[in-house]
Design a protein around this nucleic acid. Structure first.
Length: 592
RNA sequence: GGAGCUGUAGUGUAGUGGUUUAACACGUCGGCCUGUCAAGCCGAAGAUCGCGGGUUCGAGUCCCGUCAGCUCCGCCA
């Protein structure tokens, strides 16, 4: 017997037709004399009626049916009796009068029912992920993910891109995230690494003359997890030859415009706005600013440098800065809330929070009496403060002030409900520094990765003032989340080697770890560059979800375990022996 | 490595200020019921209160530790 229709497709147009349905029993309503079953498949839900008047045997079989049984049902589609239509159901005009049913599989009582999943503890949902996923909302998310991938594939294909797979078993390279390692049985003591990204392979494909490459690439990073970070994730990886920054950015904008139009039916305003790294840090205290609301940071250092208020003036004289944000309509915040905010900013590393309530009776602040009236007026004017506003200031070292105000800005927007969650606000961040100094390791390291090209005019600074060198790199930010990033790469061996030296890689390590790349650069490497997007994040944001776990079929927990399969797990001593591996800590469990 | 939140029948919760039988809803099981769709009515079963220790005459409740899940910092080229 073959299924003739999906449950969800039945409508008044099918009245009178004989159908065969197969699906899961979502709900059973037993009236003694008549049983209603809501039968669900991926296409939707339809009501099935089991009545002894129609088919006694079928009705009796129906007594045993329970929720989540898998059933085949055959019978006629009938218009529901007048007054019993269900307007809340897509198929609510009709029902299937069951002439026969077959129980394809029974189901025990479930730990939870798919419909309850949104309220159920996530750990339980992950353990029984197949029950959690047995929901239309989940199928919808994965349908959208599939469609998005297809739109992107089609778009890039039409632009002449080739989708190429790169190895999952590759070599560990220095820099970057911690690698997942895979021991080599055939090469005792040697290890593959799972790719953190296909970075070097895609560059080598450019050297191979592919010109335009893309891939939905699985990437692995053995770092701690977050709501938007999994150890295993999917990157939409793109690389092109003979292009500049603008080409990549335009391509991205066209691709995303197409994606949002096709999948969400939304028009994106392109080109996306651009902010330099410096502007982003100054105005938003972050290199991934959320531009769905304003509340820009204002620097008042020069205004308070000679203030009578030592808290402010001393900070500036010590070489720090004083910056603030104007929180509209927040003057009425209680002392308790303000104390809370004060605690918050100290937990973020600031010395303290200075606040000024612009109330009806003037300015209220513990610091108010330390300023002259003229100074206060000046400060308020500089901030653009109006009656009803709350002004918040941080006086500290520049980097602390930036990051704390950046976080505070988000905190205030959240508390005041300033964020329109339906908005998609893209912004390019450009002109990143190429290198930054790592205090711990006492050396410069790449802000993005060491294959990023410096701006031509900054190349002379590489050895003299590395921190000043700007990168030909760009990040794409959506609603305060880093969606992707890329750069123009070094295609000259000489420059690439220089960069390795600047980040403190010894010559032998350069040869050992990156010799294959340098060699490839020697044999006719075209100018090239590209970009990579966190595809899971993209889906999360498009669906207005709070975690990428909801767009990954089988995600890991925060401790990187899989509650469904119980991975990772011990292996047998034999397996380890074949891999030439022993556990250093003999307390570690090995299956014997 | 660090900070915070959570953990009570299958599920979601309540459980005050420390005390007898740990409560409610949904679900499950049984009975009744021929038009429900959050079906209804009657009844029943179901909990070593995450785990270990401590304080106490007495701990779901207080203290310490631990495990798990989540959020965040560090980390994530």
């Amino acid at each position: 017997m073959n299924r003739s229709h999906s449950c969800g497709e039945l409508s008044a147009n099918h009245v009178g037709q004989q159908v065969v349905l197969m699906g899961w029993v979502q709900k059973r309503r037993d009236h003694g004399g008549v049983i209603f079953l809501d039968l669900r498949d991926r296409g939707g839900v339809v009501q099935v009626v089991l009545s002894p008047d129609l088919q006694k045997e079928t009705f009796e079989k129906g007594q045993a049916v329970r929720p989540e049984y898998v059933l085949a049902v055959w019978g006629e589609v009938k218009r529901r009796p007048p007054g019993t239509e269900n307007p809340n159901m897509a198929t609510g005009q009709v029902e299937v009068a069951a002439e026969g049913i077959r129980i394809l599989n029974a189901a025990k009582s479930l730990p939870f029912y798919p419909g309850d999943a949104p309220e159920v503890d996530e750990a339980l949902r992950l353990r029984y992920r197949y029950l959690d996923l047995r929901r239309p909302e989940c199928w919808q998310a994965f349908t959208l993910r599939h469609q998005a991938a297809k739109v992107i594939r089609d778009f890039l294909t039409n632009r002449g891109f080739l989708e190429v797979e790169t190895p999952m078993l590759t070599r560990s390279t220095p820099e970057g995230a911690r690698d997942y390692l895979v021991p080599s049985r055939l090469n005792p003591g040697q290890f593959y690494a799972l790719p953190q990204s296909p970075q070097l392979f895609k560059q080598i494909l450019m050297i191979a003359g592919f010109e335009r490459y893309f891939q939905f690439a699985r990437c692995f990073r053995d770092e701690d997890l977050r709501a938007d970070r999994q150890p295993e994730f999917t990157q939409l990886d793109i690389e092109m030859s003979f292009i500049n920054e603008q080409d990549i950015q335009s391509l991205t904008e066209e691709m995303l415009a197409e994606l949002f139009k096709q999948v969400l039916g939304r028009e994106l305003a392109v080109p996306f706005p651009r902010l330099s790294y410096q502007e982003a840090m100054d105005l938003y205290g972050s290199d991934k600013p959320d531009l769905r609301f304003g509340m820009q940071i204002v620097d008042v250092s020069s205004h308070v440098r000679d203030s009578t208020c030592r808290v402010f003036s001393d900070a500036v004289k010590r070489g720090g800065v004083v910056r603030g944000i104007r929180v509209p309509g927040a003057a009425s915040f209680s002392r308790k809330v303000l104390d809370e905010l004060g605690k918050l900013v100290t937990s973020w590393g600031a010395r303290g929070l200075a606040w000024f309530q612009l109330g009806d009776e003037g300015i209220r602040s513990p610091l108010a009496k330390l300023f002259t009236p003229r100074e206060l007026e000046d400060l308020v004017a500089k901030m653009g403060g109006e009656k009803g506003d709350l002004l918040l200031f941080i006086a500290d070292k520049k980097d602390v002030t930036e990051s704390v105000l950046g976080q505070l800005r988000l905190e205030m927007a959240g508390r005041l409900g300033l964020i329109d969650s339906d908005q998609f606000s893209f912004v390019w961040i450009t002109d990143f520094p190429l290198l930054e100094y790592n205090e711990e390791e006492k050396r410069f390291e790449a802000v993005h990765h060491p294959f990023t090209a410096p701006r031509e005019e900054d190349i002379p600074l590489l050895e003299t003032d590395p921190g000043k060198v700007r990168a030909r790199a760009y990040d794409l930010i959506l609603n305060g989340t880093e969606l992707g990033g890329g750069s123009i790469r070094n295609h000259s061996r000489e420059l690439q080697e220089r960069l390795f030296r600047v980040i403190g890689l010894p010559q032998d390590a350069i040869e050992e770890k990156f010799g294959f790349l340098l060699e490839a650069l020697d044999y006719g490497a075209p100018p090239h560059g590209g970009i990579a997007f966190g595809f899971d994040r993209m889906m999360m944001l498009m669906l207005h979800l709070n975690t990428i776990r909801d767009v990954i079929a089988f995600p890991k927990t925060q401790s990187a375990t899989c509650l469904l399969t119980k991975a990772p797990a011990p292996v047998t001593a034999k397996q380890l022996a074949e891999l030439h591996i022993t556990c250093a800590d003999n307390k570690i469990k090995v299956i014997r």
